[in-house]
Design a binder for these strands. Structure first.
Lengths: 359, 359
DNA sequence: AGCGTTATGCTCATTGTGAGCATAGTATTC
DNA sequence: GAATACTATGCTCACAATGAGCATAACGCT
């Protein structure tokens, strides 16, 4: 007892009895192809996905095979933590991600730990997911194979404002929000709902805040416009309408968390470069940033921001296949991490996005 | 199998055998008294701290009592997750925090999940800590009682620049860094070490970045200037010098993570108000911000920032006991959360801090 | 009354941001 | 082969935000 070690039988006295906690590692793997942001999804846990399964095999699965785990819906890939072999959580994640997908992950960052009840196993264990955000280079979608690169915004269609406000907002979301606010039972409740909707969705003069992804998701979940497959959570019953592609369990919540984090990072860390090949045109860079932030940027100002902050340097090479005047190829200047430790590619305050009226 | 539930026997196949994972919830509870930022610390796990224990009882503890858990050093309080009763992790944390300290926590945010090996129990279980950051109102330190409000910077003294660069930097840290860089075996390694030190500690023209707390901590840990009590981690052996007050296990790392997160939040979220009473003078607000950011701010510009962004509103009341001209009392305008959803009390780029030469 | 101390108002130079005009090179079309 | 479409790139200008500091106000104390 003199070694200063940690004795968990005290630390987890709440874990008495036969109910334990089980831990898995989830990865939101992000890539951008062209102007489409994508995340890696699977239809059942990766470790048993030993062959391509674009086909839906849910019906044929025997009672205890793995397919029911995701209920036939896609989810984000996860892998187990090996408490013995994995020295750190991050190494554990890299291990199974490499083993099971072969994907080369550059940037990797812990996102959040999800542990609400409802994530419960039949054996009664509590289930905990430590989710990581992983960024990988621009990839061409491989048509086959078990994991599927799914367009990120297919799950959160209200988040993509690149072509103006998504139609779904006016058509379904705003009316549902109005109903929800109007149906408040007390004045106090009305005011709270009103303010919450205003903040999350930018109603009545409040500007739309691209970063408030999780607020929006959770509000939509509460009013029953998006569903989760987690039993025991108390969402309103479905509203008749279902918005966006559903995912297994609470995975869409995890995906929303990842988008919020990544959008936040954009403004103070040069994360976009993790998603691009070694050299790229400024348009490609801008497309990646727009894809993630969900907003259009003013082209000349974007260029000015990137060049004046010396985030990139010329390579001397030229990209010819632009459809117009050839563009110079740039590479990321890693030195900026030292020179200006907090620098990003979108600005933080005010209206950052503008339609270009340059044509 | 038709309910879409999650079946952890697949999800955690890595957990086979008799090695399991044990989960605890840690809380970094922050308060500011005057200009001293403090965190709540304990000398042994809170659930067995049923009476004041400022005295060190390590020697008298029987073999399986709890005292050895923190090895006689202070740590941050933690409590168990009750997998059955606690619907969410956050509620679980609020439960034991209320039960065991009675502290009224306003702001609560998940910080990070720590799960490196080394956090291992004698029974062989892997230990996972989900850490939360909690902010509470300005408190006067109660001299006695089990939990102790310890000055935050006593653990991380190199982070407090309010009175200029801390002496410890020039005296111990910079020389140690130089040694460490010089002792690199290859050119590549030298360059890497050099760049890392430069980024973390702002050497040679690179500005000191107040937010890079974790980088600095981890570098100091690697070169052996700060110690952790976690077995199996490979820090350099102690350098002869020990900087800052040590903590149990890897708790100082958790504390550094919390400081980094909080400093980051300062610039885009009005978190400082969570640490203040309902009404306050602008000086009090500034002191809190300075205490957390570790830097002095220009008084008139700080006032301008706060007032022009309409973060506060006048109460009409006056605080007389200022030592000079009486100051107006303000209150936080909660509406700003709706009007300007991303707003903070320190700016992000450039040199934000300046000594006022106003006298 | 004079001094120390903190509060508060205001100015001014500089930099950062939003918006758009103008021109340069490609490929494609008539 | 000129017109057209399209993307790249250079540049300007108004306005907002920031860094720094001067000046004055209002208290307690000697």
């Amino acid at each position: 007892m003199t070694d200063g070690r940690f004795y968990p039988e005290m630390a987890t006295s709440g874990n008495r009895g036969d109910v334990g906690v089980t831990v898995g590692l989830n990865a939101i793997v992000v890539a951008v192809t062209g102007d489409v942001p994508r995340i890696l999804t699977v239809r059942r846990p990766l470790e048993i996905a030993d062959h391509p399964l674009d086909s839906n095999e849910a019906e044929t699965a025997p009672e205890h095979s793995g397919d029911g785990a995701l209920g036939g819906r896609e989810g984000v890939p996860f892998g187990p933590l090996d408490p013995v072999a994995d020295r750190t959580l991050e190494l554990g994640l890299r291990r199974w991600l490499a083993e099971q997908t072969g994907i080369e992950v550059g940037y990797l960052e812990q996102l959040y730990t999800f542990g609400d009840r409802g994530r419960v196993a039949p054996v009664g264990n509590r289930f905990l997911s430590v989710a990581y955000l992983a960024l990988t280079r621009e990839v061409e979608v491989s048509g086959s194979g078990a994991p599927i690169w799914a367009p990120w915004y297919s799950y959160l269609p209200w988040e993509d404002w690149r072509d103006g406000p998504p139609a779904i907002l006016g058509k379904h979301i705003f009316p549902a929000l109005q109903d929800w606010i109007a149906s408040a039972s007390t004045d106090r409740s009305w005011a709270q709902r009103h303010e919450r909707a205003q903040i999350a969705f930018g109603l009545g003069g409040t500007p739309w805040n691209r970063n408030r992804v999780l607020d929006r998701y959770e509000l939509l979940f509460e009013i029953g416009l998006v569903a989760e497959a987690v039993p025991g959570t108390d969402s309103a019953s479905t509203h008749g309408v279902e918005i966006g592609r559903p995912m297994a369990l609470d995975h869409r919540r995890i995906v929303a968390t990842a988008l919020e984090r990544l959008r936040g990072k954009l403004s103070y860390r040069p994360v976009a470069f993790e998603l691009l090949p070694g050299t790229f045109t400024l348009l490609r860079l801008q497309q990646v940033v727009e894809a993630l932030s969900g907003e259009r940027l003013h082209k000349q100002n974007f260029r000015r921001l990137v060049e004046q902050n010396r985030l990139v340097e010329r390579t001397g090479d030229i990209e010819v296949r632009t459809g117009g005047r050839p563009a110079e190829l740039f590479r990321f200047r890693r030195e900026v991490l030292r020179e200006r430790p907090a620098i990003g590619v979108v600005i933080q305050r005010g209206r950052l996005a503008t339609e270009t009226h340059n044509g």
